[in-house]
Amino acid sequence: MAEMHSIDLVVNGRAVSRNVPARLTLADFLRQDLGLTGTHVGCEHGVCGACTVLMDGDSVRACLMFAVQAHGREITTIEGLTPAGGLSPLQQSFCDHHALQCGFCTPGMIVTAEAFLTRGERIDAASAREAMSGNICRCTGYVPIVHAVMEEGRRRGLARNEDE
């Protein structure tokens, strides 16, 4: 029987306490123990970005850390970035620009873009591409994703109209 660790953390604004085995990744903990299946598990070795979540506001790969390492930390998943009964402006922008097709990568894309935009720095298409470069999409070809992020950047006053 594997040794269990007691962990206390905050997930999407709510305090959570659980017992976990050391080898449980944060991604599997969120999906299996908490039922937060919006965090997708793609490659499981840190390449695809589908499992991206926020830890204390920074984007991280949930497949590349263990749940036990999130003790005392604050995690935000795609569920925490989605308003009840609707879409956030960033999510709506993804719809408007056809920035998703199958949707598998989309939660990771939204979380990554949210972290990028929340920093509040001026952005342009080049910095948006760089910020999104750790997330793989096999449907869209990325151009609509950059458009969607830029539109939300303009809405937040971080980009000028000619920055694209």
Partner: peptide, 8 residues
């Protein structure tokens, strides 16, 4: 690597 990796 990428932003997420550089954070951690």
């Amino acid at each position: 690597a990428h932003e997420q990796i550089r954070n951690r």
